[in-house]
Each structure stands twice: as structure tokens, then as C-alpha cells.
């Protein structure tokens, strides 16, 4: 039967039927490797990330790569047109994606992309938010929780300052109050966790199949 890995990071979602499941899996791996490499390069540029132990760097990246990619590629989800453009450049309609098995997650991914887009983040805000997504001290397996927490706090403080600065009108002296935009942005973190869990379940089902 046809094997389909309907992931936007997959160059060939419709697998060659002559290939074995193992070969299809390896092709998929080759498709997303450049994107993962970019996430690692991004992490290396987060001030303080390289000072963490190598195991903690790996743990954060293993746990957070999907979430970083979801933020980075959320613009591939066209809410208005109800389409998703894969990294190959191919654009698929909702019906096509559902037929490819991308059903349950799809709505949640569109919803996330839409909500993130409404915040109209600048590239600087998006970069800092992505760093906050990656540096989460509550990922399981972190060895030096204090070090990761410290870095996480620094990043959240910087993001808070940046977002509040661009949102609060000049002359407004409510320095202790966060802008609704910042609050909404932080609320995207649990949304990303939920998507990450759904994605993991999807991967498990593929592997078991």
C-alpha cells in the first residue's frame, strides 16, 4: 500500500511505491536534516546557549526542534486559502492533506499559525520568542536545571522588554504591567507543547505501522 508521510518538511510526501519503508523513512530523514541543522545553528547563536552542558544542549534541541520549526514555518500554513506549502514548494489543499492522513493535527496547526500571525511579530521579536521556545527548563532529562532556568529567565526578560517597548504607547508609565500582546505570546508556549505531543504521537503511529 502507499506510504505517505504528510509532513511539510518532507520533500516527497507521496513515497515511491518501489521503495522499502526503511528507505522511505531515510528519505524523510534526509528531507528534514537541513531544517534541523538550521535550528542547531540558531541555538548556537543564542547568547549563553553554548555555555550549557552539551547533554543539556542536545536535550533542549531534541525536545524543542519541532516547536521551533512550527514557529519558523508557520507562514507555510495559509489560513485564508486553507492550504499548506511544503518545503518542496508544493502547495496542498485541506482536502488533499486530509486524504494524506494529516487530519487531527491540521486544525491545531492552522489555529496556531493564525494566532501567531495576528500578533504581527517583528523579526527580532520572533527570533527572541523562538529562543524562549527552545530554552525551556522543564524539558525532561535536563541535568543542570538551574543553568537552563537562568538562561530562560534572561531570554523571557529580554522578550518582555522588547514586546512591551514596541506595544506600550510613549508616555504610558505602567512599567510593571505587561502588554496584552506579550501575554498572548507567552500563551503560545503551551499551544506549542500540545502540538509537539500530537506530533510525537503521529510519529509513533508511523513507526509502529
Amino acid at each position: 500500500s502507499d506510504i505517505m508521510l504528510a509532513c511539510p518538511m518532507n520533500m516527497q510526501p507521496h513515497a515511491d511505491p518501489s521503495k522499502s519503508p526503511q528507505e522511505i523513512w531515510e528519505d524523510f530523514s534526509l528531507s528534514f536534516t537541513p531544517a534541523v541543522k538550521e535550528v542547531v545553528e540558531f541555538a548556537k547563536h543564542i547568547p549563553g546557549f553554548s555555555s550549557l552542558t552539551q547533554n543539556d544542549q542536545v536535550t533542549l534541541l531534541k525536545a524543542g526542534t519541532f516547536e521551533v520549526l512550527m514557529v519558523r514555518f508557520s507562514s507555510l500554513f495559509n489560513v485564508k486559502e486553507q492550504t499548506v506549502t511544503f518545503i518542496s514548494g508544493a502547495t496542498y489543499s485541506l482536502e488533499e492533506l486530509r486524504a494524506m492522513g494529516m487530519s487531527e493535527m491540521l486544525g491545531a496547526m492552522f489555529d496556531f499559525s493564525h494566532k501567531l500571525a495576528t500578533l504581527e511579530l517583528s523579526s527580532e521579536e520572533l527570533g527572541l520568542f523562538t529562543a524562549v521556545v527552545l530554552v525551556s527548563a522543564d524539558r525532561s532529562g535536563i541535568e543542570s536545571v538551574l543553568s537552563v532556568e537562568q538562561l530562560q529567565e534572561n531570554l523571557i526578560r529580554a522578550l518582555r522588554s522588547l514586546v512591551n517597548k514596541s506595544t506600550v504607547a510613549p508616555g504610558n508609565n505602567h512599567h510593571n504591567m505587561d502588554s496584552p500582546r506579550f501575554t498572548k505570546l507567552l500563551l503560545k508556549l503551551p499551544d506549542l507543547r500540545t502540538l509537539n505531543n500530537m506530533h510525537s504521537e503521529k510519529l509513533l503511529s508511523f513507526r509502529i505501522d
Partner: peptide, 27 residues
């Protein structure tokens, strides 16, 4: 199959990229 990230070979890719020697994986 308790760890999807390991199933994907993600850890291997990440470790190599962190060390700056990510090479083309053989097909």
C-alpha cells in the same frame, strides 16, 4: 518506540550539527 525523536535519528543529527561536522548521511 517510546522516543519519537530517537526514532527519527534526530539526536544523531543534532549532535553532529552541534559539533559542526554534519556530513551527508548515506542513502
Amino acid at each position: 518506540f517510546s522516543d519519537p525523536a530517537s526514532n527519527l535519528g534526530l539526536e544523531d543529527i543534532i549532535r553532529k550539527a552541534l559539533m559542526g561536522n554534519l556530513e551527508e548521511r548515506p542513502e
